[in-house]
Design a protein around this nucleic acid. Structure first.
Length: 547
RNA sequence: GCGCCAGUAGCUCAGUUGGAUAGAGCAUCAGCCUUCUAAGCUGAGGGUCGGGGGUUCGAGUCCCUCCUGGCGCGCCA
């Protein structure tokens, strides 16, 4: 048992002896200020009301009634309004390091998910242009959330939904054809709502080279297929530049060809939640929290976009995913209620909150001190690959992850490029490289350091105590970041761990330390290396041995 | 007008689900390389946590209300 678990049990027993009634659920946590001790509890304050005594008095009685020798508690003191602070013997506080080294690359993993399937859908960009920086945020976020879920025991499927049907694709095909005509005749007539980007010209050139029999794009179906294929390859390149991979690419067009869309509409009508009005078929989404009912089938017989969306999510459920999360831009937030309403209206037992959504706010790009307006149709934007080429994959990932998804993100291209060495990601990577350097210079294979049979009582420096505490908190942090679906908590925590590691490195010597101390410090260096490496890998960032 | 999300140091942002004296980076100022990497370390200054109410032992965090900003409100996707 870990020290905090022993303290927790002892608190429950002590509270019972004072006459407190179950359930007693003491919170044992790290104090905000490490100088207060190793662990703290507010139990005395939460019991004050039911016991009708002053928190300080209860705290004193709890301490008197507790037997915490097994946890290695050196002293327990009352502070502030009634906190009880526990300070552990140095050796007891650091003894967990051996467990870190034993788990090594698995340290921080949990079995919470029990191996159940979890579908993580992200990016899902229309194949009408390269991926821009907003998609990059989604890619970094979705991939990190997928990693977190894997680390907590879920069987994750990374999924990309291709909107390869519908009006936007038609616009794409017509835009390419316009460029083909321009090549042949010199006359450019882009369609209404067409795409202006330079890449359309490139696709037209490639098409003309491959299909000399059709220089004007007369075979629109062939142009469409060619353009979609070209842009999918383009997006794959962008994703590879970021190091993001998908297990499943689900095509919207297949929902039509497999009859899933018609099937879904039939089910909705059969369930009785639809009605006819003005020649259109409507779904009563207002029964499920929407502010107005929505058209499913327009009077011209075609479906609105959310029908295939619902059909698509039905397939997730049918494919056995009882857990699913969609990472999307906040500009799509109106679809959340709509898709969920559609799934509810099927009456097939899909729960209310299915699927989960993690929406992120917009990314604005600054270049030359001015905002770059992102518009595929106008052809002005910064692609994911531009960013990776300019500042590197690790820095791009960290930049896009260090902020909470709920807050808008400004990506200053010039700043990221010119100040790349001051990027916080290098600070964390440097801490890892320094730990590695200790083993390299010492001629020691880090993986052979077990931390077993060591007297951790020699780790007496304040910088060692705080670093140890941070390392032992890592599994808890992975769990809470996963539960909240917030990778930025991990990013912030790794930065803090790196700060503590740099501080420790600066204050103490490892290789030249006396026998006994040296072994304990090597174990600490190894544990630091493990935590930084594992944490960075969850964020999709490398942990270099030297820089 | 309605809905969602934000408002924290000069700037960019964290804040571990309600805890103790609100933190970090950048920027500014003052120091530290004969060292396992100075891509580092130490110190200083800088705050009515948008305003006002409320809930309780305790609020940046929860509730109400107002202000400001972003996004979304179509038989477009």
């Amino acid at each position: 048992m870990t020290p905090d678990a022993i303290i927790r049990d002892a608190l429950i027993a002590a509270a019972r002896s004072l006459g407190a009634t179950d359930p007693i659920e003491p919170v044992v946590e790290r104090p905000r200020d490490p100088s207060f001790g190793d662990w703290t509890t507010n139990l005395a304050m939460t019991l004050a009301r039911s016991l009708r005594r002053k928190p300080q008095d209860i705290a004193a009685q709890l301490i008197a009634a507790m037997d915490v020798g097994a946890a290695g508690v050196r002293d327990a003191t009352i502070a502030g309004a009634g906190f009880i602070n526990f300070r552990l013997d140095t050796g007891a506080a650091a003894s967990g390091l051996a467990g870190v080294l034993a788990a090594a690359g698995s340290y921080g993993r949990h079995e919470t998910g029990g191996g159940q399937p979890f579908n993580v859908e992200f990016v899902s960009a229309n194949p009408t242009g390269p991926l821009h920086v907003g998609h990059g945020r989604q890619a970094a976020l979705g991939d990190a959330i997928a990693n977190l879920l894997e680390w907590t025991g879920w069987a994750v499927t990374r999924e990309f939904y291709y909107n390869d049907a519908g009006v936007q694709i038609q616009n794409l095909a017509l835009s390419v054809r316009a460029r083909l005509v321009e090549r042949a005749t010199g006359i450019l007539e882009l369609p209404e709502g067409g795409y202006h980007g330079e890449y359309i010209r490139d696709i037209a050139a490639a098409y003309a080279a491959k299909h000399p029999d059709d220089p004007m794009g007369g075979d629109l179906e062939r142009v469409r297929g060619f353009a979609v294929q070209a842009l999918r390859e383009e997006q794959d390149h962008d994703l590879r530049a970021l190091g993001v991979r998908f297990d499943v690419y689900y095509l919207e067009s297949s929902l039509y060809s497999d009859g899933k869309v018609d099937e879904t509409v039939g089910l909705l009508q059969h369930a009785g939640h639809t009605f006819e009005e003005g020649g259109a078929t409507w779904l009563r989404t207002t029964h499920y929290g929407d502010d107005k009912d929505r058209v499913m089938r327009k009077s011209d017989g075609t479906y609105t976009y959310f029908v295939p969306d619902v059909a698509y999510h039905v397939t997730k459920w049918q494919r056995g995913f009882r857990h699913a999360i969609n990472v999307q831009g906040a500009d799509h937030h109106s679809t959340v209620v709509r898709v969920r309403a559609g799934l509810q209206a099927l009456d097939v037992g899909i729960p209310e909150g299915y699927p989960e959504y993690q929406l992120h706010q917009m990314v604005t790009v600054m270049r030359g001190g001015e905002e770059v307006k992102i518009s595929k149709r106008a052809g002005s934007y910064v692609t994911v690959r531009d960013l990776v080429d300019e500042v590197g994959r690790d820095a791009v990932r960290y930049f896009l992850l260090m902020r909470k998804a709920d807050t808008p993100l400004t990506f200053d291209v010039d700043l990221a490029r010119t100040q790349s060495e001051e990027n916080p990601v290098y600070y964390i990577q440097m801490a890892h490289a320094r730990m590695s350097g200790i083993f390299r210079v010492g001629g020691i294979d880090a993986s052979t350091v077990t931390g077993v049979g060591i007297d951790y009582g020699t780790l007496t420096e304040e910088s060692e105590r705080t670093l140890v505490a941070a390392l032992l908190d890592f599994p808890r942090l992975v769990a809470s970041a996963t539960e909240a679906r917030e990778p930025q908590r991990l990013a912030a925590s790794l930065h803090e761990t790196a700060r503590l590691a740099h501080n420790w490195y600066h204050r103490v010597r490892v290789l030249e330390a006396p026998d006994g101390v040296r072994e304990a410090r090597l174990a600490l260096a190894r544990a630091t290396q493990v935590v930084l490496q594992n944490g960075l890998s969850i964020l999709g960032i490398t942990a270099p041995e030297r820089m």
